[in-house]
């Protein structure tokens, strides 16, 4: 349970990080909060020759709100976003989802961008980004490009991020006036990865629902305003449409049942929290 040897580089800014990535190529891994990568190194699931530490990029440690988008830099931890004073007013969906990610002791180092970059099918932040319709800023030595969330996450643990690129920041759309937000999930224990998670946004003219954990990546649908049996029917159709998988945590059938139950709870809670 000890990592294989690697060269350690600590980047002081983004330029250094992407230059080192370009040089080292496929042999390098970025180290952000280490809350996923360090266990993989300890178990020798990966043995990179070079580790590029991006956890201390002063220029990318912050959270910026331009009025429409909330931009979170590559070095910003999940704990720092959780402690951002305007969070519950400006990003209520994130305010509800963040406490469900791991534990206080892992959020203190785990980064927001690292979670999005790793693209675990159950990751709460990937689900929030997909449901809100956010974007990912990718940086390489060749330049910067911005992708919508749906184009970024391409499958289970796979994204459009090239080997010479880093996620420099992610941008979450800020709360819209008149919208209600809810996030709910089912996990074996508090802090475990969710078996299924559901995010919902309720507006006067419609509902948006996002499902995580059931398939390889988040699934997002837009519905007209629904309630009662019409909502049950829509959730049932959504559950059947999912390409849900069996694994050692749960069967596909169980996951579909969770989508029906949690989906209803999330949609109703979002409708109730509409201002």
């Amino acid at each position: 349970m000890k990592p294989a040897p690697f060269d350690y580089l600590r980047a002081d800014d983004e330029e250094e990080a992407v230059a080192a990535l370009a040089e080292a190529g496929d042999d390098a891994r970025l180290l952000a909060g280490g809350q996923t990568l360090m266990p993989m190194l300890n178990m020798r699931l990966v043995e990179p020759a070079v580790l590029i530490d991006i956890s201390r990029l002063p220029g990318r440690a912050g959270i910026e709100d331009d009025g429409t988008l909330i931009e979170v830099g590559a070095a910003a931890t999940q704990a720092s976003l959780e402690a951002w004073p305007p969070l519950s007013a400006r990003a209520p969906l994130l305010a509800r989802a963040l406490p469900l990610i791991g534990h206080v002791q892992t959020r203190s180092r785990g980064t927001v961008c690292g979670s999005i970059a790793f693209a675990d099918p159950s990751a709460e932040l990937s689900l929030c980004l997909a449901t809100l319709g956010g974007e990912v800023v990718l940086r390489s030595r060749a330049g910067t490009r911005t992708l919508p969330a749906a184009a970024f996450q391409t499958g289970m643990l796979s994204t459009a991020c090239r080997a010479d690129e880093m996620v420099a920041a992610v941008r979450f759309p800020a709360a819209e006036p008149g919208a209600g937000y809810a996030f709910t999930e089912f996990a074996r224990r508090h802090g475990d990865f969710a078996i299924v998670a559901v995010a919902a946004i309720a507006q006067e003219n419609g509902i948006r629902i996002g499902v995580g954990g059931a398939c390889e990546r988040p699934v997002v649908q837009d519905w007209p305003p629904l309630a009662g049996s019409a909502l049950d029917d829509a959730l049932d159709a959504l559950a059947w449409s999912l390409d849900a998988a069996d694994d050692h945590h749960a069967s596909a059938r169980y996951r579909r049942e969770l989508v029906r139950g949690l989906g209803k709870r999330a949609v109703q809670a979002a409708q109730e929290t509409r201002p």
């Binding site: 350690y8 809350q35 360090m38 892992t106 180092r109």
Partner: peptide, 14 residues
């Protein structure tokens, strides 16, 4: 680590 509770097993000495 600098006041915050962290996993020492997921942090490098360096």
């Amino acid at each position: 680590l600098d006041g915050a509770p962290v996993r020492a097993c997921l942090t490098l000495a360096v």
